[in-house]
Amino acid sequence: MKYMLLIHAAADQEPTCTVEDWMAHEREMRDAGVLVSGHSLADLVTATTVQVGPDGKRTVTDGPFAETREVLGGYTVIDVPDLDAALEWAAKCPGSRDGGAVVVRPIAEFGL
């Protein structure tokens, strides 16, 4: 079963974890054979939003800029037997600390 871990950082708190922490976490997932894919996202100031209206007109805007306190900073997709295993990996993710949060979403399966 695949789960996406959406890694949100607190907008108002500096993380204390280091690059080494992230690399160790990735290595651990790789060694356990659960890592499917994952990326971290560039700074939020680089984000652009696209919407297409009912008339087909395209709107492109700068942002979104956080009114929210949490900013999506990256994701990981893992393949594990059940939700408990996914929550275990989410808790190990450095992004779950320092006011950050990891949202665990099962990846939808269509058919068999």
């Binding site: 037997p81 059940d82 939700l83 408990d84």
Partner: peptide, 10 residues
């Protein structure tokens, strides 16, 4: 069922 919450004793 969809998030696969397991049936197990922790």
């Amino acid at each position: 069922s969809q998030a696969r919450i397991p049936f197990r004793v922790p």
